[in-house]
Amino acid sequence: MNQHPFQQKTFLLLLTLVTVGFGAILWQFHGAIFWGMVLAILFAPLHRKMLLNMPGRENLAALCTLTVCLVIVILPMTLITVSLVQEANAIYERLKSGQINIGAYVQQVVAALPAWAINLLERLNLTTLAQVQQKLSSVASQASQMIATQAVSIGQNTLEFIVGFGIMLYLLFFLLRDGRSLALRIGQATPLDNEHKKQLVSKFTTVIRATVKGNIVVAASQGALGGMIFWILGIQGPVLWGVLMAFLSLLPAVGAGLIWVPVAIYFLATGAVWQGVVLTLFGVFVIGLVDNILRPVLVGKDTKMPDYVVLISTLGGMAIFGLTGFVIGPVIAALFIACWDIAVSAPSQGQTPPAA
């Protein structure tokens, strides 16, 4: 505080430069760092219970919490990913060999459509099998090219993924062990009022817990239920379709219906009436109600954000940050609202005398 103004400005410039430089170094592994922080926040209550049962043994408590995290979260995700890759590869091979003929399936649906729907398809040149196959072959070639590109990309980024995964686990251990003291030091270094810091930290942790628990629980529930009904009805690749439904359920206003509705339509159009009716009823009254019941309970009450803000922030976050954006987007939106609430309330608070 007693430094010369020039020295203060020089130090602030140096502080800004080294902070930006350190952020640039960490940016390459921002996903691993972010998910390490998220898992540390989610499993912090469990770690506190571990510490109560293991007083003075911080390393052992953090290691036990990390082990529980591996068993509950990471191991199941690994097994699902392996099954997903196997089923996706099997379906791709059937498509490539012609065992699965999408053109024939579409033609069966077209033949069962009413006259007005066929007239609409005639305007789009989609009524003959040759035309359908021609358009689908174009789509399939583009999809095959995309799959091949992604496969090469995954092979090239295997080492990067392993390194990032190791960084996440390593960081998670230390965040569990030293998270409270680290948060205290960051809070002391942040030039904000104590009440404002508490408000922002509370909003940050609340939104992360609500978003991750709510979205992941809803997505996992819808994906599991969708995969189960597909398996019961004998549809190939139930794990693949279940994972796709779980992924789509992360997107507000889209949902798992983008997968099961076309399948139900195909069943009804091709004469498999009971399969179509069962899938439709299950999709509407079971898969659909999971989202309507669980999401408001797990997300809405904690975040206290309007639905349209959650929708826009989730889609925008995923557009910028990828899959991780379904958490980052709502968190940024919540902090934006909290900061503006502080900014708006600060002048009125300044007019009142300070509390004793």
Rank of each mutant, 00 (worst) to 15 (best):
F6N: 13
Q236P: 07
W116V: 08
S181D: 09
Q3K: 14
Q222F: 12
V299M: 08
G214I: 02
R209Y: 11
I265Y: 00
F326H: 06
I293L: 10
G31E: 03
G271K: 06
L258E: 11
P5S: 14
V139W: 14
D193N: 15
G155W: 12
A264F: 06
G300P: 00
T128D: 03
L258R: 11
A104G: 04
I337Y: 13
K301T: 11
D193E: 15
T65P: 01
P5L: 15
L294K: 04
L244F: 09
V110F: 06
L51D: 04
G98Y: 13
K203A: 03
L75C: 02
Y105N: 01
I265G: 05
T127N: 12
Y170T: 15
A346S: 08
Q7T: 14
A333P: 04
G98S: 14
A104W: 02
P191K: 13
V277K: 03
V239Y: 03
I118E: 15
G271F: 04
I33A: 08
L258Q: 13
W231D: 07
A219T: 10
R295S: 03
L42A: 12
P262G: 06
G276A: 07
Q236L: 02
W260L: 01
L184K: 10
R94Y: 08
I147K: 06
N194R: 15
R209A: 12
A272P: 02
H47D: 00
Q236D: 01
V218Y: 01
L120E: 11
S313P: 11
C64H: 14
G300C: 08
F174D: 13
E122A: 14
L192E: 10
T211A: 14
H47V: 02
I229K: 05
S348M: 14
I259D: 11
K96P: 04
Q275M: 10
L66D: 05
A32H: 06
I259T: 13
L52K: 14
L289M: 03
L42E: 02
L60Y: 03
L200I: 04
D193C: 09
F204T: 09
M318E: 04
I337G: 10
G56Q: 14
V82P: 08
I74R: 02
V18W: 15
I102S: 04
V68P: 01
L136I: 08
